[in-house]
Design a protein around this nucleic acid. Structure first.
Lengths: 210, 210, 210, 210
DNA sequence: TATGAATGAGTCTTCATTCAT
DNA sequence: TATGAATGAAGACTCATTCAT
């Protein structure tokens, strides 16, 4: 019988270390040697569980996303509609170091996905899945009358996710402005923009075309 | 008597090559050798003009931003207010390969800036400058009555920039959905959301706090 | 009570896998992990039966030679003299994929034996044994009058083996010329050269020495 | 101006070291580090001149072949026909350590070429070129009446080359039998077998088919 | 100023081998 | 006997950087 170890748990453990190294110093800091040392395993062990660096990086992202999903899951447990939505946003924005690190990892991965086709496709899927969760909340909120819009829930969700990511990235780069309090305040804006009637204003379009 | 060369022009030339390599294959693709070969200079020349790789990467970003500013400058020349704003947005979104490559470089740099403090500060400055341009347009549009909001132009600009960056990044990763036409359509939404009265809806906040 | 396994059979089974991997991708392809996977055993089992990689490679060669000997044994069963000789040659030349693979393994081993003394000695023994079989056939053919030569059977056998190996190696590298048909035709030449009187031609020697 | 070095000469120098290491300890002994140390250059230099190990190994073979050709060129200078042929054979057989090392390198390469397609093709070309030289000598010898055969010179050359390679490989593995004197004696046999009339002996073929 | 030769640190990766279970 | 976890050495390779010319 082989030595019994929880293969999956070991993977997560190492993935976590990798993610934290990436968050701390970017991809370049996440060398296998560094990961091995930081996780108190030997270099060989790391490669035993991951076979190749790509998988390792991928694992780090998976770990970050898993953390995100678990946090959101807890935050929205038992809630639906607008209440769930607010909690979901709160759990997504980089309001503390943990989430900030998450966003750093995400950003690193985004810059890779913009270039490598296979990563881009995975990113697309992940993006879509994320939108679906927001869509569910929004649809529920619309049924309850908390959100009143003529747009499709899916479109609202899509735009909301974009706003959140734009806001989060800005927050990563601008600590002084985007304080925790400020970000919390922005949530109101996000919800407000979401909840309004969409009454097309033709003048706006005409104004810029002749 | 040293050979006369236009130092600055040479720098730009090499920066451009670097930027394109980064857009094509990420930071890792932008090795000095690669840059030297792609620019038809020798390795030594590249290092002569840049003194270290960090400067070189920094130069690539500068070049991308310069291109961006020139393009926006041309697009908004002679225009103010809402007209200028629309053109500015159009020139910012990744509607074609050139701008898409620009965004790739930006994304690479963002992921670095999220981690390296000195880069983050430079990024913050650049971010603020970008907002100012939008702010100018928005302020003019408000004076002309094209935009009606109780928010400060600066806040509106800040949020708009975030929305644009969130949208652009999403577009980089999701080619099938974010077609050129689709993106153009989203501009209307961006302007629409901007132009509306901001009437705080207390109910929204109360609904989620007890 | 240990589990009963046929130790020798297991060794052959693994040796066969190793031999095929070597034939397919050279020594480098025959890593223990690869052999383990290809044979559906675990890495540990392979090392349990072989105790070191050298033995494993050696086993692969043994297997290839065993195959060769069995094939020749069948082909020449009941035959002697010239008939046996032709069959022996046919069974030796790389006329099909199986024998071609055998030759690849042999070639890999030869290149090692040219360098490592202990392998060279084993190779010498194997070489000598191979010659003896040919010698037996040739001696019988001479007794029967099918071969007429003043040379010793041993010398004839030695030269024949060399010719066969030279021809086989050439065939490995030159598929287009050395087709199956062509090789079969060459057998006649081999036998022809063997069967002739050796009448020294002094002129030939004098012609090149002064 | 860059430091002036003779690029080609440097390549040969390193190739020579590689070839000797291969002859001494096989492919495995020819690591880049070993080659660098043995040639008193740094690791980086070796890769600067060769970019990749494949090229390096290839260079080693080229070097060995170059040596061979130069030696043969000198040995046959001014000679034609049978005289040239004998000298050519003498310069080919592993009669001394230098040629023996050459054969070791060749053998290593052969075992690789039997497996890797691209190498096999190069080997095929080299093989053909080698035959052509022998063919020239044989054709001249036939014109002079020193060789009398109904076979085409090309076929005679091809078979001769095979015999030589078979003999040489055997000599590599069997030092005690294939002494220098013995090998020199075998040359007479090679020439003798070549020079004889080819009178098909139908009996031989019939003898083995029924 | 320009070239590219030279260096050596550092990375990923593969592998044989040992060992606990 | 069997498994596969663990180790660490060693390999190829890339790269930024320095330097002689």
């Amino acid at each position: 019988m082989p030595k019994i170890v929880n293969h999956q748990a070991r993977r997560w453990e190492i993935s976590e270390v990798a993610a934290k190294l990436i968050a701390g110093g970017g991809l370049e800091a996440a060398t296998i040697r560094e990961i091995a040392e930081a996780s108190n395993y030997s270099k060989g062990v790391v490669e035993h569980y991951f076979d190749g660096k790509d998988e390792l990086i991928s694992g780090a992202l998976d770990w970050a996303n898993k953390c995100y999903e678990q946090r959101v899951g807890k935050a929205t447990a038992g809630l639906i509609g607008l209440r769930a939505l607010r909690r979901r946003i709160e759990a997504t924005l980089p309001l503390n170091k943990i989430v900030r690190d998450e966003w750093k990892v995400r950003l690193v991965f985004w810059s890779m996905a913009a270039i490598q086709e296979d990563l881009r496709e995975r990113q697309e899927v992940r993006f879509r899945r994320s939108i679906e969760h927001f869509e569910t909340d929004i649809a529920a909120a619309m049924r309850e009358g908390d959100i009143d819009s003529q747009d499709e829930p899916r479109d609202l969700a899509r735009r909301l996710v974009n706003m959140i990511s734009g806001l989060s990235v800005a927050a990563l780069h601008n600590h002084s402005l985007y304080t925790r309090q400020f970000l919390l305040g922005e949530i109101d804006h996000l919800l407000y923009q979401l909840a309004r009637h969409y009454t097309p204003v033709p003048a706006l379009r005409r104004a810029t075309h002749e």
